[in-house]
C-alpha cells in the first residue's frame, strides 16, 4: 500500500514564533496545473500590528549587534539554505518552475545571501566619511539603519525576490515585516523555518501571507514603520505608498527589477535603508602647528 504523505501546514512567522493568523482565515492558491499548493494563512491587519510590534522590539538589539556578527548570521542563513536546497527546489517546481529554473533560483538565492553577508561589516567603511570641516571639530558621517521596514515582496518569484529584498535590509541592521508573494507563498514560509533554526533573533524578520491588497494599507499607513519597499511594476501601488508616506514621512523605495539577474544586487540596495548620521566633536588644539613637534 502506498504510504500516506504527510502534508505540510504553512503558518506565518512573527517575533520568532509560528502562529496561525489572528483572523483564523486561510486560502488555497493553486498552480498552473490546478494543484493546490497548500492551505495558507490569509492574514489580516491584526497580524500586521503584531508583526510591527515584534519588529520594533527586535530593532534595538539587531541594530546594535556587531557588524561582524550580523555578517556571520546572514552567512549562517545561507548555510542552512544550502542544506535544504532540495526542499526549496521541490516547492518552486510545485509552484510552476522547471527543474532547471528552480535549481538556478535556489543557488542564486544562497549566493545572494552570502553577497550581502559580506557587506555587513564593510558598507559603513565604503559609504561613511570623515568630513574636513573648516572649524576645529572632528566630523564624521556614518550610515545607521532606518528602522522597521515594510516589504511588499516580489509577486512573480517565490524565493529570489524575497531574499533580494530582505538580505540588504537586515544586513544593514533594520528589522522588517514581509508580505510574501500572494500566489507563490511557499518558499517564504519555508524560508522562515530556515531562519528559525539560524541565529537570527526573533522579530528581525516577520513573514505574513495573504492578500497583498488587503494588508498593504495597514502596513503602509502604520506610524511605526519607517520605510516601505515595493517590488513590481504596478504604478497604482507606488502611488498609494507615496501617499501614505505623507502620514509620517516613511521612506518609499520602489524596485522594478529582474531579481534573477546578477546585477540586481549592489551596495545601493543596502544604503537605501540607511540614514546618514553626522557627529561633531571639538578638537582641542594646544601648542603650535602639530608638524613642528
Amino acid at each position: 500500500m502506498e504510504r500516506l504523505k504527510v502534508l505540510k501546514t504553512y503558518k506565518v512567522y512573527i517575533g520568532g514564533k509560528f502562529p496561525r493568523t489572528e483572523s483564523g482565515r486561510y486560502y488555497s492558491p493553486k498552480n498552473a496545473k490546478g494543484e493546490v499548493l497548500g492551505n495558507i494563512c490569509f492574514c489580516s491587519r491584526k497580524d500586521i500590528r503584531n508583526s510591527v510590534v515584534a519588529a520594533r522590539k527586535a530593532f534595538g538589539g539587531w541594530s546594535e549587534r556587531a557588524a561582524n556578527n550580523r555578517g556571520q548570521i546572514l552567512y549562517r542563513i545561507a548555510e542552512m539554505l544550502e542544506g535544504r536546497k532540495a526542499q526549496f527546489i521541490e516547492e518552486l517546481i510545485l509552484q510552476g518552475s522547471t527543474k532547471v529554473q528552480a535549481e538556478k533560483e535556489v543557488v542564486l538565492s544562497i549566493d545572494r545571501l552570502i553577497y550581502y553577508a559580506g557587506w555587513c561589516d564593510k558598507y559603513t567603511q565604503v559609504l561613511g566619511s570623515v568630513n574636513p570641516v573648516a572649524s576645529s571639530h572632528f566630523n564624521f558621517s556614518m550610515h545607521v539603519p532606518t528602522g522597521v521596514v515594510g516589504i511588499l515582496a516580489d509577486q512573480k518569484t517565490s524565493l529570489i525576490g524575497l531574499i533580494s529584498l530582505i538580505a540588504p535590509v537586515i544586513a544593514g541592521g533594520n528589522t522588517c515585516v514581509v508580505l510574501a508573494s500572494e500566489k507563490l507563498p511557499l518558499c517564504a514560509i519555508t524560508f522562515s523555518e530556515v531562519l528559525n533554526s539560524s541565529d537570527l533573533p526573533g522579530g528581525v524578520l516577520n513573514v505574513l501571507t495573504g492578500s497583498c491588497s488587503e494588508m498593504m494599507k495597514p502596513l503602509t499607513t502604520h506610524m511605526d514603520v519607517n520605510a516601505m519597499i515595493y517590488s513590481g511594476s504596478d504604478k497604482s501601488i507606488v502611488k498609494e505608498l507615496k501617499e501614505s508616506s505623507a502620514l509620517n514621512l516613511k521612506r518609499i523605495l520602489h524596485y522594478d527589477l529582474d531579481w534573477m539577474k546578477a546585477d540586481s544586487q549592489d551596495l545601493y540596495k543596502l544604503s537605501d535603508f540607511q540614514e546618514v548620521k553626522t557627529t561633531w566633536h571639538p578638537i582641542e588644539n594646544i601648542g603650535g602647528a602639530s608638524s613642528s613637534y
Binding site: 574636513p132 570641516v133 571639530h137 566630523n139 548620521k277 553626522t278 557627529t279 561633531w280
Partner: peptide, 14 residues
C-alpha cells in the same frame, strides 16, 4: 546630526 560638546555647527562638507 549629533553635536557633542558643541551645537549648531554647519559646514559645506558635513
Amino acid at each position: 546630526v549629533i553635536w557633542a560638546n558643541t551645537y549648531n555647527k554647519f559646514d559645506p562638507t558635513s
